[in-house]
């Protein structure tokens, strides 16, 4: 049992708003004896595009999976729209990494997208025409409606990523968690995804996105979370994505630090 007096008030989440899309208190996740996430405390505000960046192995994917109850937590808890994940499941859309799946499976792109509706369809009931139409619409929104009946291994990387995205969209969730959606996709797909994300933001949805490319952080995200096993900094991109915070996150490992600084300079020069 926890002794309340031994834990400072901060981590009791007293100052986390009850209705925020995602509220994480004191989350710690470990593999064997190695901690991967240590003492993560976060609150995410609604209607924003939030990027999570950090070096490899920093626990970014682990964070997403721990929120989704896919990994066991050593401590801490997570609130989504004020309730536990189990209760708010319908309001959360998940876009996992592409490598998590065997693309040789005998399903078409439409089938994959329709999987996002299975929960709504319920146990043992078939996938009816209306659900397939919804899936089709989602495919259309990501721009690959013409590939609906193609088997997924015949899609390019960017098209596969779009199919995954469509699968999350078809749920019409309010909070989207995406794990490296921009990894190894072509520029056209990247532009399309960014457009989609901005559209989601306009509709008041929140997107939490694990991102790997420091160059594009300022351009894509309203807020940024810098992570390295713990949260180094969290806030609006303008004020948080600074060289000092980057140095604290990446330590000496950042060879891209110089490039990131250049990108920053270019962006701010371009803005003025």
């Amino acid at each position: 049992m926890l002794n309340n007096h031994s834990i400072p008030a901060r981590t009791r989440g007293a100052d986390h708003s009850p209705e925020s899309p995602l509220s994480i208190h004191d989350l710690t996740v470990a593999y064997d004896r190695k901690p991967v996430l240590w003492d993560v405390d976060l609150e995410v505000s609604a209607g924003k595009l939030i990027g999570i960046v950090g070096p490899n192995g920093a626990g970014k994917s682990t964070l997403i999976k721990a929120v989704l109850d896919l990994l066991p937590r050593a401590s801490g808890h997570v609130n989504i729209f004020g309730k536990s994940y189990k209760e708010s499941r319908a309001r959360v859309g998940y876009v996992p990494q592409r490598e998590s799946v065997d693309w040789d499976f005998p399903v078409s792109a439409l089938d994959v997208v329709a999987m996002g509706r299975y929960r709504k369809i319920g146990w043992c009931r078939p996938v009816t025409r209306s659900h397939k139409n919804a899936a089709m619409e989602a495919l259309d929104r990501v721009g690959i409606a013409n590939l609906a009946h193609r088997q997924i291994s015949q899609l390019s990387g960017g098209q596969q990523q779009r199919a995954f995205l469509a699968r999350a969209l078809v749920q019409d969730a309010d909070l989207y968690l995406m794990d490296e959606p921009f990894a190894a996709v072509d520029a056209a797909t990247e532009t399309a995804i960014v457009g989609l994300l901005q559209n989601l933001r306009e509709r008041g949805k929140t997107c939490l996105i694990v991102h790997h490319d420091l160059q594009t952080v300022r351009e894509y995200f309203d807020e940024v979370i810098l992570m390295n096993m713990r949260v180094v900094a969290h806030g609006p991109t303008e004020t948080t994505f600074t060289e000092e915070n980057l140095r604290k996150t990446y330590g000496g490992k950042l060879t891209l630090l110089g490039e990131a600084a250049e990108a920053n300079a270019r962006q701010s020069a371009g803005k003025h």
């Binding site: 959360v92 996992p96 499976f105 299975y118 369809i121």
Partner: peptide, 18 residues
């Protein structure tokens, strides 16, 4: 459809509450 889902993407299925 349940079997198809877990054969294809078990982790996604889990995140969906299956």
């Amino acid at each position: 459809k349940e079997f198809r889902l877990i054969c294809f993407d078990a982790e996604y299925a889990k995140s969906q509450g299956w």
